[in-house]
């Protein structure tokens, strides 16, 4: 069932075209990956879809409702939640307080609320509930970021480079968590550069270049597509 439907989405900054008519569809059971070179518009896409930026043209529909132009907090409350490239937290607050904020302000209706402590256990931060978030190492902050997004009771999670800065074993743990989410009722759409991760967990991969979609399909098909290889490796001689 299609939950997020993006049609012809454009975003321009002055003369610069960051998104050039993107079409996208994600279901609540999906794990969809978005890849592309730096500057291809991946984070901008997330920003526009989640309300951090306003679209210049096109439509974004969430569960049948047009949400283009809505405020970020409103979209989050409807169950469309994103994480950030940087490891974001509320630094001076404890881990538990961080989670409680997401728990209190996240989506109201639909899903059954999960106690924040259980979510912290789910991402592997149990025992650290009283630690100050700002004093935690990077890897734990990433876990916290994921826990916060989950605590906001999402139906679809947009993860922005969740594996950035993680080593192989941490990435493997992350993959394990992400794989379980659709089974728990949360769809996932993620951006990342780690191709191993993407091929191993994504059912479908979308490739962006200069703000436009240049390929979509199963990971092994997409990565062997000639156009995609040109974009990443340069034109064949």
């Amino acid at each position: 069932m299609i939950a997020l439907e993006v049609k012809g989405l454009r975003k321009t900054f002055g003369g610069v075209v960051a998104l050039d008519g993107i079409d996208l569809a994600v279901g609540l059971d999906d794990i969809v990956g978005i890849v592309g070179p730096n500057g291809s518009g991946k984070t901008t896409l997330f920003n526009v879809v989640t309300g951090a930026l306003k679209p210049s043209a096109g439509s974004v529909r969430w569960l049948g409702e047009e949400i283009g132009g809505m405020a970020a907090y409103q979209i989050a409350r409807k169950g469309l939640v994103r994480t950030f490239q940087q490891a974001m937290s509320f630094p001076a607050l404890t881990v538990r307080e961080n989670a409680l904020i997401a728990h209190e302000h996240g989506a109201r209706s639909g899903t059954r609320a999960v106690v924040p402590d259980a979510l912290l256990r789910f991402v592997g931060l149990d025992g650290r509930e009283d630690e100050i978030a700002g004093s935690m190492p990077f890897g734990n902050l990433r876990r916290l970021g994921l826990a916060l997004a989950l605590a906001a009771r999402p139906r679809l999670l947009l993860l922005d480079e969740p594996a950035a800065g993680l080593n192989d074993s941490e990435t493997e743990q992350l993959a394990g968590i992400i794989r379980r989410l659709p089974g728990l009722g949360v769809g996932v759409c993620l951006i990342d550069h780690d191709m191993n991760l993407m091929t191993s967990i994504c059912q479908r991969l979308i490739v962006l270049d200069f703000g436009a979609k240049i390929a979509e399909g199963r990971p092994e098909d997409v990565l062997n597509d000639r156009k995609v290889m040109e974009v990443y490796l340069g034109a064949p001689t």
Binding site: Y73, P91, A152
Partner: peptide
């Protein structure tokens, strides 16, 4: 706690559903 979340990281707060404004 909500006010503190705004103080600590406004962007994150909004992304988690806090009506910051």
């Amino acid at each position: 706690r909500t006010l503190r979340s705004i103080r600590e990281n406004e962007t994150l707060a909004a992304a988690l559903g806090v009506n910051v404004g």
